[in-house]
Amino acid sequence: MRTALLAIGVIIGLTRFAAGFTVEEETVFPSAGVEQQRIAILSTTDTAVLKPLIEAYQSRNPDIAVHYTVASSQEVFAAIQSERLAFDLVISSAMDLQMKLANDGFAAPYRSAATEALPRWARWQDRLFAFAQENVVLIASNEGLEGLGLPQTRRDLIEMLRDNPNRFRGRIGTYDPSLSGAGYLFATQDARQSDSFWRLAEVMGSLAPRLYISSNDMITDLKQGTLVLAYNVLGSYAGPRLAGDGDTSVVELEDHTLTLLRTGLVPTTAETPELGGAFLDFLLGAEGRRLLRDAAGLPPIDETALSSGPHLRPMRLDPGLLVFLDAIKRRAFLDEWSAALQQN
């Protein structure tokens, strides 16, 4: 019954939203009881991932309907920044764009016991809050690497690629930073962390890498055997999809592994900001954290995971994220990236 109701509410496909805002998917979760209020959530996270959490939230609040709209991170950013659309909560994995929204005054301050309990690195002011921490990993096909062993650092990886160009030519995948916001964020943060990133880019460039715009595509290609290695894949997607697959390995590189923070903010355009805040509180609360981990496959904010993994580098939620959004800086970075990749 429930699924049938849901199916009615689901609109799949690229819908033009108001003026020029492209929506990937819009789902209405009707209230179980009489609808008193509705929350409008704009998100980059797939509906299927957060569905268990939305349903759990509605079973607690039967009079609330949830409108869940999925769009790409750029579209999410534009919907709030230039189109000033009314959403009660904006969820995105693009930390830099979320940071820019918050910095430029599009996020309303929100404060609750749950947000106050967040560690300092997991929030910015009282405007931007992280609810999941996802490692950016290397995935590898065990068969493809046969006889070489798993690389544990970028230095290992560079040496391995350099020593076995024939094995890896055309079989390495990574994000195209010029097309993917996440890929750009990972590349710029990698470049900040160490110079080995540029050496890696040069080595990969010499091996005709395949460039992707999503982690899921890289995982699919790895499983199909098209790729031997995929660099900078979101571990939260790779983990569940590769779990129990003896042919693949997920590697957190020991020199540094970036940790992405999936963040939420209540935009100033919200019609019912208190509901947006309430849903955020639910994500940060005990039940929300459990469902995030078990049902959504997103690791909740956990300080002990960071302290027990010294190789993990959570990207800092601070105005530094704005630097690579600067148009000139972006152009310069992408130029350098292209130069490194297209050396031959």
Partner: peptide, 22 residues
């Protein structure tokens, strides 16, 4: 004019307190 915004210059502004930067 070549502009290469130093990351740390911005990051350090947030080190004392989480303030908005323009």
């Amino acid at each position: 004019v070549g502009v290469d915004l130093p990351y740390e210059a911005f990051s350090i502004l947030g080190s004392i307190s989480a303030d908005r930067v323009f």
